[in-house]
């Protein structure tokens, strides 16, 4: 019993420590973005056409690579600054996969298998583009959880420009930047910690034979591997190596594992629920999950 508790504690700590630097970086970038980027500037810089905006979001990860742990914080600030959801949401979903590091690690893990790499990209691209287009007409701030905007306003209601200790935007010093970064980290860190605990509990207390039961049919295998990706919450840089190790599973199930994990996992669901409106959170979980499942079954069908 003590060994299990110790392993649970160690696993929780490992997942948290792995993600923490990226969450911190995301928090810092988000605060810098919020502080120094004038409202509406980025919106004016993005293309006018809907498709153009979606494509900018999809491929922005190549220029601003970030993992799933940090991207939620950045996207929250983007949306608050008026970046259209058609750009921000595809960026959030694609950046953890469509970036040089993760593409390379997938290529290596599957030993130069371009088909697997292509399926992974497709599984991320399809729901990201779909959700980006679907959210086209919704104002950015409406995606965010209602209380969040109020919570971040100073309690005095001055909008951050009074004499009660809030420096007006544009004259914000490093101490304030660090303090705000810390506060942001504490807020989202809670969800990271909860996700890490849930993931560790599954890993420590589930019998290893459970996964083999899922290998009985392609449907079960795909569903089982997707479920595993969601509960394990493995970083997108490493998940391909884990997927490749499940050699007894169909390739489609392995692809589904690396397709869904960077978009939906326990720590992300917790963060989504903290940041986004309930319906948006539901969409961010259901749409990628359903799309990846369907694409994996197509992959199984065509022998991909």
């Amino acid at each position: 019993m003590f060994e299990d508790l110790n392993m649970f504690a160690t696993m929780t700590t490992a997942v948290f420590l792995e993600a923490a630097p990226f969450l911190l970086l995301g928090s810092l970038l988000g605060v810098l973005f919020e502080t120094y980027m004038p409202a509406g500037r980025l919106e004016r810089l993005t293309p006018k056409s809907t498709l153009g905006r979606v494509l900018v979001g999809v491929f922005a990860g190549l220029l601003i690579p970030t993992c799933e742990c940090g991207v939620v914080s950045i996207v929250r600030k983007m949306l608050k600054k008026g970046v259209p959801p058609t750009t921000a949401i595809p960026y959030m979903m694609c950046a953890p996969v469509i970036n040089p590091v993760v593409l390379a690690s997938t290529y290596v893990a599957f030993q130069g298998d371009y088909a697997m790499l292509s399926w992974r990209i497709l599984m991320v691209l399809a729901p990201a583009v779909g959700l980006g287009l679907a959210l086209n007409r919704i104002p950015s701030q409406h995606l965010l959880k209602g209380g969040l905007l109020l919570q971040e306003e100073p309690s005095c209601g001055c909008g951050g420009a009074c004499c009660a200790g809030h420096e007006p935007e544009g004259r914000v010093g490093p101490i304030t930047i660090l303090a705000r970064t810390g506060a942001e980290f504490v807020e989202l860190g809670k969800y990271l910690a909860l996700g890490a605990m849930a993931s560790a509990a599954f890993k420590v207390f589930t019998p290893p034979a459970a996964m083999e039961w899922f290998a009985q049919s392609p449907w079960l295998a795909v569903a089982g591997m997707m479920g595993l990706a969601i509960v394990l919450s493995i970083c997108s840089e490493a998940d391909a190596f884990v997927a490749a190790s499940f050699s007894f599973m169909p390739r489609a199930a392995q692809a589904a594992f690396i397709g869904v994990g960077p978009m939906v996992d326990l720590k992300l669901i917790a963060m989504f629920s903290a940041v986004f409106h309930r319906r948006i959170t539901a969409a961010l979980v259901i749409v990628p999950t359903a799309t990846v499942f369907v694409l994996a079954m197509v992959m199984q069908g065509v022998g991909g």
Binding site: A164, G165, I175, A179, G182, V186
Partner: peptide, 25 residues
């Protein structure tokens, strides 16, 4: 960076880290 963030936090009177967040961490 977290150490510096922690040292800076008390000086930002607008910051509100939240008790539930603190409790989970």
């Amino acid at each position: 960076v977290l150490l510096f963030c922690g040292l800076a936090l008390p000086f930002d009177r607008g910051a509100s880290p939240g008790w539930s967040n603190i409790a989970v961490l």
